[in-house]
Amino acid sequence: MNNQTVARPPAVEAIGLGKKYRRGWALRECSFRIPAGRICGLVGPNGAGKSTLLGLAARLSSPTEGEIRLHGESLADPELRRSFAYVAQDKPLYRRFTVAEMLRFGRELNPRWDQDTAHRIIEQGQLALDARIGTLSGGQRTRVALALALGKRPDLLLLDEPMSDMDPLARHQLLGTLMAEAAEHGTTIVLSSHILPELDGIIDYLLLVDAGRIRLAGEAEEILDAHRLLVGAGTAADLAAHTVIEARQAGRQLTALVRPEEQAIGGDWEATAPTLEELLLGYLRSPQAPSLCTAEAGQAVAA
C-alpha cells in the first residue's frame, strides 16, 4: 500500500483554497495535501467548514479563490468525476425508488460498477430490495447511499458525517466494509466527523478544520508524536521553552498540552502521549494555538 502512495499524485491537494458565501468566508487560505491511499479524518466543530471543503472537493461548488485538485487534476472532466464518490450529509436519494432500482441506477451510470460490493452492503443491513427509499430510516438510507458510493469502485471516497445516524452495530459493519475496501483497492477515504472517538484506530491522516482554517494537517501518528500531555506542579511560565497549545491550572497542578521544542522536557513533569481525542479537544479549546502541518501535508512548492 505504501509503495503505491509514493508513485501516485496526492489524492487531494488544496492550494490557497477559499470559499465565500454571502454571510462571509466559510474557508480561507487552506493549503494541504492528502496522499493517495490514506484514510483521512476531517474533523472540526459544527460550522467549521468541513462540508464546504468536501463539497469543493466533490466539485459541487467552485472555490472563490485558490484551487483543489484531485489526483493532480484541477479540471472537472468526466473521467475525474468517475474516479471519486461523494456521500453528502443529507444522502440525496430518490424517495420513490426501491432499493433495487436505486442500485440499477448506480449500475447504469457507472462503467466500473461493482454489483457484489453494493449488494453485500445492502444485505448486511437486511434491507429488502423492494423497499422504497422513502420508507427507510435515516441509518438505512445512509446504508443505501454508501452502497451506491462503494459500488462505483472509486479511487477516492468523500464521506460527510457518514455514520452519524447509524446504530453501533451498523457503524461497526460499515467501518469494517470501508476499511476492507481500502485494504483491497488502496482507496483513499476522507471522512468528516465530530464524533472523535469514532475515528481512533480508523484514520491514519488528520485534517483539523476550525473557523474556516486548517489547524492540523498530516500523518496522524506524526502529529500525535509531536505532542505531549504534561501534568505536574508548576505554572505555564515553566513551559516557556515549548509551544504550549493549552494549559490549565488547578491549584498547584498544571495540565498542559505542548509541542516540545527539544526531546527532553525538563522539570518534574509526568509526560504522556495524548490520545487523538485529547489532542483535538486541546486544539479546539485554544483557537489561538499555532497550527501544524507536517512535511507530507505541506504546501506545494509550485502552485
Binding site: 500500500m1 505504501n2 484514510i39 467501518l175 469494517g176 476499511m179 476492507a180 480508523i202 484514520i203
Partner: peptide, 18 residues
Amino acid sequence: PTAREVVEATAINPNTVL
C-alpha cells in the same frame, strides 16, 4: 488472516495490520 479480513471484522486501519 489477510489484512482485508482483519479490518473487515475489527474496523481498524489496514496499515495497522500491515
